[in-house]
């Protein structure tokens, strides 16, 4: 598999051995003039863990994932990734941490001016790989094929359908072989035939050691791929566990 040789830059091996991949301690988040979106959230994940984040609209799922993706900072509490507290790291370390994260935001945010292939290649190059090397090009092509969008590689991202764009966004996150995958409703716009293909790819990467946090409201996914989940309600973690009583 050509992709197996391309590894994202991850200077955290010593910290990883300790085992703590992600740690949230009493994390709260509020926006100016608005009630708290997250309230004293505690979470811990080790390398290779999988966690569903479940909850209704406005439960705080996307906010939590934005914090984990380092897109926003908590209003209070501490968030650690790879053993580093994010409020204490230098910009250089923060960049290294970000290079080890694969993030699929809810609104996808593909760069409309670039083709599908360029979107994915740019993500790979920013993870520290030369996107124009033969090996990297093969890796990009292979990742796009796995997501079923290989035939769209030269299409501008602005011309993709919702489902296609979602698959490209997942390819863009996975191509860098991140230590952590953070995906916010990554299958929301998919045809049923693709949902299970995508989940298979994500589950395989998780089995290979990629910590995965996936926000979804699709109970069928949770039912088929039994994994631990955290149920959010009103910005608080209401329940945490892996039993059907908690997750379904």
């Amino acid at each position: 598999m050509p992709g197996a040789e391309v590894r994202a830059a991850g200077p955290f091996s010593r910290k990883e051995k300790i085992g703590q991949m992600l740690h949230l301690s009493a994390v709260s988040k509020s926006y100016l003039g608005q009630p708290r979106v997250l309230e004293a959230v505690d979470l811990q994940l080790k390398r290779g863990d999988f966690l569903y984040v479940i909850g209704g609209s406005g439960a705080g799922k996307s906010t939590l994932l934005r914090l984990l993706a380092t897109e926003e900072s908590p209003t209070s509490g501490h968030l650690s990734l790879f053993g580093y507290r994010l409020d204490q790291v230098s910009p250089t370390t923060l960049r290294s941490i970000r290079r080890s994260i694969g993030y699929v935001p809810q609104n996808l945010r593909l760069i409309p001016d670039l083709s599908v292939q360029e979107n994915v290649a740019l993500s790979l190059s920013l993870a520290g790989k030369k996107s124009f090397s033969g090996e990297s090009r093969l890796h990009v092509a292979h990742t796009l094929d796995r997501m079923g969008v290989g035939h769209l590689k030269d299409k501008p991202a602005s011309e993709l359908s919702g489902g296609e764009a979602q698959r490209v966004a997942i390819a863009r996150a996975l191509v860098r072989q991140p230590e952590i995958l953070i995906a916010d409703e990554p299958t929301g716009a998919q045809d049923p035939e693709y949902i299970w293909t995508l989940m298979d790819v994500i589950a395989k990467a998780n089995l290979q050691g990629m910590t995965t946090i996936l926000a979804t409201h699709d109970r069928e996914i949770v039912r088929r791929f039994r994994k631990p989940c955290a149920v959010l309600k009103g910005g608080r973690v209401l329940l945490e566990g892996r039993s059907p009583q908690v997750c379904l």
Partner: peptide, 16 residues
């Protein structure tokens, strides 16, 4: 702004 924000999240160097 949107592209830069995304690339920053991917770990792009400020010079880039």
């Amino acid at each position: 702004a949107e592209s830069l924000q995304l690339m920053r999240l991917w770990g792009a160097h400020p010079v880039f």
